[in-house]
Amino acid sequence: MKDTARIRTALALAVRANLPVLLWGAPGTGKTSSVLALGRELDLPVEVVVGSVREPGDFSGLPVVHEGGTRFAPPRWAERLAAAGEGLLFLDELTTAPPAVQAAMLRVLLERTVGDLVLPAGVRIVAAANPPGLAADGWELSAPLANRLVHLDREVSAADVAAGFAHGFPDSGAADAVAPSAEGVAAARAAVGAFLRVRPELVLAVPEDPGRAGRGWPSPRSWEAAAVALAAGRANPGAPESEAAVAALVVGAVGEAAGFEALSWLRTLDLPAPEDLLADPGLALPDRADRLHALLGALVAHVAADGGAPAWERAWEVVARVSRTVPDVAATAARDLASRRPAGAAPPAALLELAPVLRAAGLMPGEAA
């Protein structure tokens, strides 16, 4: 049951966090029915768009002469979602969509735009696909399309199916899940950014093999998705199999090798909470630069979410401590913190100690970055 719960929770977290997610599985494993059930669970309309029976114009819009110019009219499914203001756009059978249709889907996934219509923020995108070898006239996913999705493998066990037939299939838990906060996403981005400072070669690694390029792989876009997934997990720690679900989302975004390495690094951070650090700026700090990057990034995110002058002023004490041993790390945090100065905040005394760091960061009057 654990594997099933893991993917079910991962789907719920992705939908709440507005991450476009792709369910992979063999034909007949219930991918479509699970998405339709998710819509019922969340009381959202579901628009099913099957890739094999669509043309590029169903995503890029049909050119129509209008008032002496040309507009690109969206299809009816997009108009219905726009009118509802929220819903699930279910892109089914992605691997049966020919390359021209896959290319037209790119703008929908990245910009949430269909023709001249922008889909509301309340519309979530879920897709499903059979492995190309099991799809009718199957195509590999193009690398650009694959990199816009978080990939989840839907697993089916005899015990789960038997229990579902006997007692009904359980809900995904999406109704109880909450979206990550802006502060939570910013803190997760800081942690991921700190990892990428240690492993810069993983920022972008496009697979040469078409099959691997059609799944998750590292890019700035997919690392952003991984950070949002981390934030979603932290916002829902009580969800069933939450830690395993987050791992599935991170690996589904950036691939197994990069994903597991990042998760292993993140588990060993053991950093003080930003609020504890602000309450006692003398708390012990990590001695490694990568951990300090993650700590100060989370601190700046917390201060930005707090929005108050006291938190902003106390944060400078922590930055000043870091500047004594790792000035480069402090300079990065100083730049971010200075840009978030709240109204009425007085320059703290710690700024005198930070003058060399601020000068290096281009934050002193008359200094260039």
Rank of each mutant, 00 (worst) to 15 (best):
R40V: 07
E41V: 00
L42H: 00
L44C: 04
L44K: 00
P45G: 03
V46N: 05
V48W: 01
V48T: 12
V48S: 00
V49D: 00
V50D: 10
G51T: 04
G51C: 05
G51D: 05
S52Y: 11
V53N: 09
P56K: 01
P56E: 10
G57C: 02
F59H: 09
F59E: 10
G61R: 03
G61L: 00
E67F: 07
G68A: 05
G68P: 10
T70F: 11
F72W: 15
F72D: 10
F72Q: 06
A73M: 14
A73H: 14
P74V: 03
P75V: 02
E79A: 14
R80D: 13
R80H: 13
R80S: 11
G87W: 02
L89K: 04
F90Y: 14
L91K: 05
T95F: 04
T96C: 07
T96I: 08
T96V: 06
A97H: 04
A97G: 07
A97E: 03
P98D: 14
A100E: 15
V101A: 05
Q102P: 13
A104L: 10
M105T: 06
M105H: 09
R107F: 02
L109Q: 06
L110D: 13
R112V: 01
T113E: 15
T113S: 07
V114A: 01
G115A: 01
G115W: 02
L117R: 02
V118G: 01
V118F: 02
P120H: 05
P120F: 00
A121F: 05
A121I: 05
A121E: 14
V123F: 01
I125Q: 01
V126T: 03
A127I: 09
A127Q: 03
A128T: 09
A129Y: 01
N130Q: 06
P131V: 11
P131E: 12
